[in-house]
């Protein structure tokens, strides 16, 4: 199980509080989407790349983040070029790429724990809708822990079908898989309550 995208380091970006970084990213997103000045966008893009370097992140990591978007960005560029001209196409391409890289930069320089804490604090206003922030944090961490478990249950369901000579198609295996997961859920929640979870 991989453990997130955090890249340890000592840079100023690493040391900034997670809440500050998230607010900065939000402001950054608004600024980048509002401006259509190519020179300004280029300057912003370059400074994001400089920050990337300062944070001690590598170029292969940058490629990893941008690569899944390459075809989409190129298609968008081509489309905008035909419909609205070169500068509009460049504007779209630059703003999107810069935003994705800036967001990745924040993710790479913020520990998952800190991000979780910031998210929990950010969820506090929703308390009035019946959501408890610590419950939310618990659910997030628990879901991550359950992913390998769910995968294992899925594998067993597929193997059980294979043993019965039913073929390798994973979709029919989904039914016994989900039913078993829900049974395990009942056991898990009873164990949690027995350990004092959910007492208010």
């Amino acid at each position: 199980m991989s453990v997130g995208v955090y890249h340890p380091g000592q840079s100023p970006l690493h040391r900034l509080g997670p809440g500050t970084k998230l607010l900065m990213l939000a402001a950054f997103a608004v600024a980048v989407s509002l401006t259509d000045n190519i020179a300004l966008l280029l300057a912003i893009g370059v400074s994001v790349l400089v920050a990337w370097n300062i944070a001690g992140l590598t170029w292969p990591q940058l490629r990893q983040n941008v690569q899944p978007l390459t075809w989409m960005l190129l298609a968008l560029f081509g489309f905008q070029f035909v419909v609205a001209g070169f500068f509009s196409a460049l504007d779209t391409l630059l703003s999107l790429a810069t935003l994705v890289i800036a967001a990745a930069l924040i993710s790479h320089t913020t520990r998952t724990d800190d991000m979780l804490e910031a998210l929990t604090i950010g969820l506090c206003p929703f308390t009035r809708f019946g959501l408890k922030a610590e419950d939310a944090a618990f659910a997030l961490v628990f879901a991550v822990r359950l992913v390998p478990f769910v995968s294992a249950v899925g594998r067993e369901a597929i193997e059980a079908r294979l043993a019965r000579g039913a073929g390798r198609n994973p979709l029919p295996a989904l039914v016994p898989m989900v039913i078993r997961l829900m049974r395990e859920t009942d056991t898990l929640s009873e164990a949690l309550v027995a350990r004092g979870f959910g007492r208010s």
């Binding site: 659910a139 879901a143 359950l146 769910v150 395990e184 859920t185 898990l188 929640s189 949690l192």
Partner: peptide, 11 residues
């Protein structure tokens, strides 16, 4: 149970 079910489905 409700919360754990949601977490299980998220997983």
């Amino acid at each position: 149970k409700g919360l754990v079910r949601c977490a299980m489905f998220a997983a």
